[in-house]
Computed example of a mutant assay.
Amino acid sequence: MNILAIDTVTPLLSVAAAGPSGTVALEIDSGSSHAERIVEAIDHVVSLSGFSARETELVCVPSGPGSFTGLRLAWSAGRAIQLASDCRVCPIPPLECYAYPFREWRGAVLSVIDAKKHRFYIQCFRRGTAINEPLDLDAARAASLVDEAERILITGPDAEFFAEEFSQALPVSDVTVIPNGGHGMALSYVEFANSGRVQYTKSIPDHDGPVYVRKSDAEENYSGHRNIFSGS
């Protein structure tokens, strides 16, 4: 099966393809310029994998949470691929994908993405099972998700940054930090899609869209202005 995966959740643009010529992954530190690089990146990986974008049979996109702009870009690119190829779509939950390699960990796995403003998108797992829905929390509130007596593993693209703030909120000794995000996460999407933990559908319109968890800056600014004018 010709598979294309797109990850734009973080400042690192990651795309991967698996086809008749093998599996190819590409990461580009493009910052806020994902939109300018994504088409070229997709063409590059599918070509090396032995198929064209129109021959894609499954496209994997992040279901969220993550960067508002990044999620919209990934879904837009996925929709374009789906319309051109009539392929199936596989939304991948990034936090669960980051935690998946540690499903046998005996303790709590905290999967995190930096949500800015000293807050994090976070989800806790124990033995591969999610304990909570993706949340938008600061490190102090995230400490309530775990027992300080248990072994804690922190993973995700911003694991090290979160661990620094988390250690101040919950000074425990048995903490392992493995920042697996940002290293071929699109390739991990391909592996996760093949794990049987997610369902494929025929088209993106069959989904409600990505999980944003937090309002966009524009929505928050609009809400703030409306409160000022309403006096609330």
Rank of each mutant, 00 (worst) to 15 (best):
L135Y: 09
Y189W: 08
G64D: 06
H225C: 13
P94L: 11
S232G: 09
A140Q: 08
Y212T: 11
S216E: 11
D206P: 02
S188N: 12
S47E: 14
M1V: 12
M1H: 12
H225W: 15
T155V: 07
G184S: 11
A41N: 09
Q168C: 04
H118C: 07
A16H: 04
R88S: 12
L73M: 07
L153N: 03
I122V: 15
Y100D: 13
V213N: 03
L145S: 00
A139C: 07
L13M: 09
A149L: 12
S49F: 06
L137P: 07
G156N: 02
A143I: 00
E55S: 12
C124H: 09
A108D: 14
N180G: 10
S167D: 06
V112G: 00
I38H: 00
S21N: 14
S52Q: 14
R54F: 07
S230C: 15
R88T: 06
G64H: 06
R106T: 07
I204F: 11
G70L: 10
G184W: 02
I81F: 10
A18N: 06
V211K: 03
V198Y: 10
V211L: 11
S223N: 15
H183Q: 12
Q168N: 12
S63I: 07
D136W: 07
A35C: 05
T201Y: 13
G19R: 01
G31D: 05
N194V: 05
F192D: 01
D114N: 11
L95R: 03
F166G: 01
R106P: 00
Y100P: 00
W75C: 08
V61Q: 08
H207W: 12
R226S: 15
D208L: 03
S188L: 08
S49Q: 04
E57M: 11
P171F: 05
V198F: 08
A16F: 03
R106S: 14
F51W: 00
P205R: 10
Y200R: 13
L4T: 03
E191G: 06
Q199D: 15
S47N: 12
E133C: 09
D136R: 04
A5E: 03
P65L: 07
T56D: 06
G78Y: 03
D206G: 10
F102V: 01
M185C: 14
E160L: 15
D86K: 15
V61H: 03
C60K: 04
A99T: 03
I113S: 06
E27L: 00
F51H: 02
I122P: 00
T56V: 13
R79D: 13
C60I: 04
C87T: 04
I42P: 05
H225P: 04
I38C: 00
V109R: 00
D138G: 07
G50F: 04
S76K: 09
V175H: 00
T56K: 10
Y222D: 05
R214M: 08
S14P: 02
I131C: 13
D7F: 05
P93A: 10
N221H: 14
D29S: 05
A77T: 13
F51M: 01
E148P: 03
S30R: 12
A77C: 15
T129K: 13
P179R: 06
H183A: 10
A80M: 11
